[in-house]
Amino acid sequence: MLDDRARMEAAKKEKVEQILAEFQLQEEDLKKVMRRMQKEMDRGLRLETHEEASVKMLPTYVRSTPEGSEVGDFLSLDLGGTNFRVMLVKVGEGEEGQWSVKTKHQMYSIPEDAMTGTAEMLFDYISECISDFLDKHQMKHKKLPLGFTFSFPVRHEDIDKGILLNWTKGFKASGAEGNNVVGLLRDAIKRRGDFEMDVVAMVNDTVATMISCYYEDHQCEVGMIVGTGCNACYMEEMQNVELVEGDEGRMCVNTEWGAFGDSGELDEFLLEYDRLVDESSANPGQQLYEKLIGGKYMGELVRLVLLRLVDENLLFHGEASEQLRTRGAFETRFVSQVESDTGDRKQIYNILSTLGLRPSTTDCDIVRRACESVSTRAAHMCSAGLAGVINRMRESRSEDVMRITVGVDGSVYKLHPSFKERFHASVRRLTPSCEITFIESEEGSGRGAALVSAVACKKACMLGQ
């Protein structure tokens, strides 16, 4: 009897593995994704193909990295998701002549009506938060230079001027797309009239992360975010950046690689679950690469896999709870928690219980395998993109072996128990001629924006502006 049951459990697990095998990517698959990513990057950089390229390769006008001589107080704003952060950054000489960066910050959550109302409502709310922060720190009387981390696709015309191309991540505030974001912020500050600010720089969160990590390690020339969304930036040779005049030196390019796949480059790798996630998203047909990796989508992918296993009578005796059938019910943090389970399955059992399920031991094991399959594919897909960037940098610099540091931020990278190990191992397999160091950014977005502002202020002083 026991043997029969054991055989049935083994057969069930084997069927589960057959279904989950769809998520496995072979090294040849990853090399294919990497080569296609490089081709799209090239198209994004070139003037004649930029418009139709899915990977936009947006110039950021960040050319210099901090040298350690900029000092002063800077205000930093960070808008990239449902939370908005205001930070005071003091850049100065530390002990023994070292450079020191001290920060104080406060988080504000953005109400739904500000995210989806008008641009005026959104930026009025942001300036209200700045006003509140300055009151708390008794700094209303000071006109501070301000660095703005704005983590949406922007076409820069200068370091302090950028046109919002399109909202992502659930934002829909009308009247912002096609307009200068810094102008919208300046107008809102003017409307309030109770404080003055000098907006000197606007950067993407990947750029802010790279600059913040450069402060720790001067070989950091790539910034990457794996959180709600997924994106990367890197220092490109100016001669390859056709959208900006000049051939000397390097400029940081914001790849906006989340949109890779929007022209069909990933079609052969998309599964039924991916198509369902895409169809029910706020932007169907867009940001397809990001939807395979980002935390906004990972939990939902797992939920759809679990429903398939229920329908195949391989999980929960073929019956799903009402909660499990509800879109968004299986949160991405559950994926991390399930994979963090120590082996007694308590954590998995508790999560499934909150979803109205009474799982068996085998159910718990199957749910864990589903989570591992989805998150491992995410790590491997992400590795193909980064390997594409790094191999490109090595080739354009004609280096036999390139040493490089990548600064990384984002909740999936930082909080998932195995993502970074799987990701690092896969990147290294795909970049055999590179020695890569990964560092995690601390308060990256805010500190990085302030350091970019410090560079901009120093330049302005040198130019006598």
Rank of each mutant, 00 (worst) to 15 (best):
R191A: 02
T209I: 11
A329E: 10
G407S: 04
L88D: 07
E177V: 13
D344T: 07
I390V: 10
N204E: 08
M41I: 04
T65I: 07
A11G: 10
C220Q: 00
Q26S: 11
D409V: 06
T332K: 03
V200T: 13
V16A: 05
F330Y: 06
R5S: 13
L47H: 04
E27W: 04
Q337A: 14
V302M: 02
V89E: 01
V253Y: 00
D363A: 03
F423S: 00
G343R: 04
I390A: 11
E51G: 12
R192N: 03
F330M: 10
A450L: 08
E300C: 05
R358E: 15
A282Y: 06
S109A: 12
K102N: 00
M139I: 15
G117V: 02
K12C: 14
L184F: 06
S418H: 03
C434Q: 05
K161R: 13
E236F: 04
N204F: 06
G410M: 11
G388F: 01
S174T: 13
A208G: 06
L88S: 12
L185P: 00
Q18R: 05
A119L: 10
F316Y: 02
A450Q: 09
G444I: 12
T362Y: 04
G448H: 13
R403L: 10
D363G: 01
G81Q: 04
M121G: 10
R345I: 07
E421T: 07
E319Y: 15
K90R: 09
V207M: 15
L292C: 10
V389C: 07
T206D: 04
E48D: 12
D158H: 14
S109D: 15
K190I: 15
L165P: 12
A119C: 13
I351S: 08
M87G: 06
E248P: 03
V222P: 04
E120A: 04
P359F: 02
R369D: 09
E242K: 01
L79W: 15
E339F: 04
W99M: 09
P284F: 12
R368C: 11
S426G: 14
E339P: 02
K13Q: 08
A454T: 11
Q219G: 08
M251L: 09
E221S: 08
E242M: 01
G448K: 10
F84K: 03
D187G: 04
M202W: 13
Q18K: 14
V406L: 02
T354W: 05
V310R: 02
D113V: 09
Y61H: 07
R397F: 06
A21Q: 01
E237Y: 12
M238Q: 06
L357A: 06
D132V: 09
C129L: 02
I348G: 03
D363C: 08
K136D: 12
I110H: 00
I366S: 06
G147A: 10
A329L: 06
V181S: 11
I348W: 02
E112C: 08
A460W: 09
T437N: 10
Q98M: 10
F316T: 05
R186P: 04
E339H: 01
L324Q: 00
F260G: 00
R275H: 09
G193R: 08
I189E: 02
Q219L: 08
I348Y: 04
E399I: 11
K13F: 14
Y289E: 00
H50L: 04
N254R: 11
L164R: 11
D194S: 08
D409C: 10
E248V: 12
Y289Q: 07
T228C: 12
I19L: 09
S109K: 15
S280H: 10
K12V: 14
E128K: 13
T376H: 11
T82Y: 05
A232W: 06
G410T: 04
T354S: 11
G183M: 11
S69E: 03
L185V: 01
G249L: 00
V367G: 00
D160F: 05
V277E: 03
V305I: 15
F23V: 01
S375D: 07
G72T: 04
I293L: 06
K414V: 03
D78G: 12
R303E: 00
F269Q: 12
G147L: 11
K15C: 05
A119G: 10
V335H: 02
F74Y: 15
L184E: 09
D247H: 04
A456G: 09
F133W: 03
E399K: 04
E221T: 09
I390W: 01
G464S: 12
E300M: 00
C213Y: 08
D262F: 12
G246M: 06
L306K: 02
R85T: 14
Q287M: 14
L2C: 13
K346M: 06
R191C: 04
I126W: 02
D278C: 02
E242Y: 05
L288S: 15
K13T: 15
K12E: 15
E93H: 15
M462G: 12
Q26T: 14
S441L: 10
G94D: 07
Q219V: 12
S76E: 10
Q98I: 13
L314W: 03
H424A: 12
A173S: 11
L304Y: 11
S280A: 12
S353N: 09
Y273I: 03
E268K: 07
S441P: 04
F419Q: 01
E331C: 14
S398T: 04
I163H: 14
W257S: 01
G407A: 10
F123A: 03
R397D: 04
A370K: 00
K31C: 05
D262P: 02
G343C: 05
Y273C: 05
G343D: 05
A232M: 11
M210E: 08
I293F: 06
I404V: 15
L184H: 15
P145M: 06
S54M: 11
C220E: 02
M402K: 13
S212R: 04
N283M: 10
F23K: 01
G343A: 14
A379T: 07
E40R: 00
V367Y: 02
E319Q: 07
G388E: 03
S453T: 12
F74S: 06
S127D: 00
A456C: 13
Y349T: 09
A370P: 00
E245A: 13
Q98R: 08
I348D: 01
P284R: 14
S76C: 05
S396Q: 08
G162N: 09
E128I: 15
V389M: 11
E9P: 11
R85S: 14
V55K: 00
C461D: 14
S433I: 05
R36Q: 12
R275N: 13
E14Y: 12
E22I: 12
L352W: 03
F330V: 09
V207Y: 02
E256Q: 10
F423I: 15
V222L: 03
L309D: 00
T361C: 03
S281R: 00
C382A: 10
G97C: 07
S212M: 03
L309I: 04
E279G: 06
L276G: 14
R447H: 14
K31Y: 03
Q323T: 07
F269P: 00
R394A: 10
E120I: 04
S76M: 06
F195L: 11
D198F: 04
G117A: 03
L144H: 01
L355D: 00
M381N: 01
D262L: 13
L266H: 05
A53Y: 01
R429T: 11
